[in-house]
Computed example of a mutant assay.
Amino acid sequence: MMQTRYALDLDVVSVILQQAIDHASAQGWAVSIAVVDEGGGLLAFARMDGASLLSAELAQGKARTAAIGKRDSKAFETMVQEGRLSLLSVQGLTCLEGGLPLRYEGQCLGAIGVSGVASHQDILIAKAGAAVID
């Protein structure tokens, strides 16, 4: 049986990234934003003026975690907080809030990850970007 698979294209990824940047800018937040494909491969990235160098790595890690885990990166943070410390040994997993899968027609197409402000603010920026395909 054949199945239709959707994929993020550059036009959509560019709009997702810009929506997230616009939301962060409106709040006065300097963050890094990463958009990845379903396998965690980087499609687009922006580090806003004033965002820390560490935020660049964290944003990409959060996005990759959300994409390959097919769930918010916050879910992994919660599992660690509840004692599932073995997750910390998984290479490349970033167990922090701020990564959000990008879904369309029930499929995970990739993810967006944001870092640079408090995690509960990072996720608001990610949601603004993800709203493009919701």
Rank of each mutant, 00 (worst) to 15 (best):
A20T: 01
G40E: 04
V12I: 15
V15A: 09
L42N: 09
A44L: 05
F45D: 06
A7K: 08
L42H: 03
V31K: 00
Y6F: 14
A34C: 08
V31F: 03
L43T: 05
I21L: 11
V15R: 15
I33G: 06
D9Q: 11
H23V: 04
L17N: 02
D11M: 10
A44K: 13
D11A: 12
V13Q: 05
Q27A: 13
W29N: 10
A24F: 03
I33E: 00
I16P: 00
F45N: 07
I21G: 02
A44E: 08
S32R: 06
D37G: 11
Q19V: 00
D22K: 12
D11E: 14
D9C: 05
S14Y: 00
D9V: 06
V15D: 11
R5S: 12
A24L: 04
S25W: 00
D11T: 14
L43G: 01
W29M: 13
I16G: 02
A44P: 01
Q19G: 08
G41H: 15
L8A: 06
L8P: 04
A30H: 14
I33N: 02
V13L: 05
L43Y: 04
F45L: 14
V12N: 04
W29A: 14
L43A: 05
Y6T: 08
W29K: 10
S25G: 12
L42Y: 05
V36C: 05
S14K: 12
V15M: 09
I21Y: 11
G28I: 11
A44M: 07
A26Y: 01
F45A: 03
V13H: 01
A20S: 09
W29R: 11
D22I: 05
S32A: 15
A26C: 04
V36H: 07
D11Y: 08
H23Y: 15
A34G: 08
